[in-house]
Amino acid sequence: MLSRVAERIYWVARYIERTENTARLVNVYSDLMLDLPDGVGLQWRQLIDISGAANFSKRYRSAGERNVLRFMLCDRDNPNSVLSCLAAARENVRTTRDLVPSEGWENVNELYLFGRKKFGAKNLPKGLYEVLSQVVGRCQQITGLLAGTMSHGDAYRFLRIGRHLERADMTTRIVDVGSATLIASGAEILRLENRLWMNVLRALSAYQMYRQHVRRRIKGTDAIAFLLQDTQFPRAVAHSLAEIQDSLQTLPRNDATLRAVGRARRLVNSDVRALSGEHLHRFIDDLQAEIGAVHTQVESTWFAPELDEAV
């Protein structure tokens, strides 16, 4: 399999997953803003920080709701906006069409056209919550379609690695919403903690699964442990890392990447219940760095191999 093709397939998965997760993130954040009383210190700007985009302040003067949402959803100059991700996913599928089942291409193309209609206009679409829920649903549809119609060979392995790396990364970011809120608001929010974590879990469609798993009142430490360490919940970081490890098994020259995944897995399984506030935030930074290191290793091993390695 050509390196370029592997790379494009990998990014198809990442961009679809990123689209889905950004839509989820925006929805949960909008909900939180409605649920939490003013004055607990939750601000739209934090959403930008969480999503990791750097060029917001260069482009907008104030970080009000409208600007933040436009930046996260519609702005083609933000490479992580939903519209940019959809365009990038489409371009990557377009150039690997011989490997992706044709329904896969059609679905990605339709979703891009839907996104362009909804987020390409001057104003944000009406019924934003509904629109974003539809985006989430369609992304899931594409993921399911590929899982059910594409041979699970090398190409599919790169797809799976891309999807789970992106998902692990985004789950850490969404957990960060919770910890950042707690830091920002200090003691006054503690009585609202329950509501906060419920929203975080909902953002990841994790509420029900969490309920089945943890049979007591929602607590921050339980929710964090669940989202980071559960091996069975498909959006938990530990689960995603296990999926990546599994996909790597049959790929050639996989040892360095397997070691990188191992490091991330060890870190995610450390005692997160003991962490709170600033410590948790820093822990998540470290975890994101390990996840980033897995990506770097995948890239240097399979996408840009040095010529003299095997000659």
Binding site: M1, L2, A310, V311
Partner: peptide
């Protein structure tokens, strides 16, 4: 961009198995 010419003046393609 998938192809490259090595020091041995042979052509290689970049694959996930290496050149």
């Amino acid at each position: 961009s998938d192809l490259t010419v090595g020091d041995d003046d042979c052509v290689y393609m970049r694959t996930i198995h290496g050149p």
